[in-house]
Amino acid sequence: MGKKRIIKKPKVIILRACGTNCDIETENAFKYVGAFTERVHINEVLKGYKNINDYDIITLPGGFSFGDDISAGKIFALRIKSLYRDFKKFIDSKRPIIGICNGFQVLVKTGLLPYSDFKQRVTLFLNDCGHFLCRWVKVKVNKKSPSIFIKGLPEEFYLPIAHGEGKLIADDIVSQKIISSNLDVLRYIDNPNGSIYNIAALTNEFGNVIGIMPHPERAFFSIQFPWKTREENSVGFHFFKNAVEYVK
């Protein structure tokens, strides 16, 4: 990575807006793996009180930002339009960004995933079943993807989903490119929402930006699983640990 200094405690900014719900447990996950965290409202960034480039990791947690009005993540995406330059600087400096569920929807609608040119190329649309779904699903990792977040993950594992608009859609050209560049990080083994190629998580080409529909912060401790499991199997842990280790 070529960093000159060693960062002992990476600084994580957890961007929230009205309706963001999963910020506390996402913050706790980062705290647990040794990061310094701050939950910041986007208004504080938009008003200039805080700057995203002062941080080492950006997190966009899950929730119903702006009530999912218009469509999930759309209003949040519109709000952060004016921060394009800041986001471009952050992404180009190869620092990690993780968007979980609603966060993934925001990244996609802002045009930061899978390509960071602020043009929307894919979307996350209504589940095929037509309603919100909350359950655990099995996913498998694409070991060939460049994502920095997947180190140490077992080949197949379970994560919980909770979303109404998780169906990834892209036209044939974009889809082919995603597959050939291995930008599909995770795929559902039993597709719950109809996503193309069963994609559950996307990365950018460098691998520092990830959008993931399932919730790793809800599969972080073994007690969060619907059946008894050993601590080592708490896969959510790896996503956060990898981000922090990468920055160090």
């Binding site: 218009i70 469509s71 759309k74 519109l78 609608k109 929307q120 190329r121 894919v122 979307t123 649309f125 859609i169 892209a170 036209d171």
Partner: peptide, 9 residues
């Protein structure tokens, strides 16, 4: 175009 539409679908 800019606010309401999802250009992909």
């Amino acid at each position: 175009r800019d606010i309401l539409l999802d250009p992909i679908v």
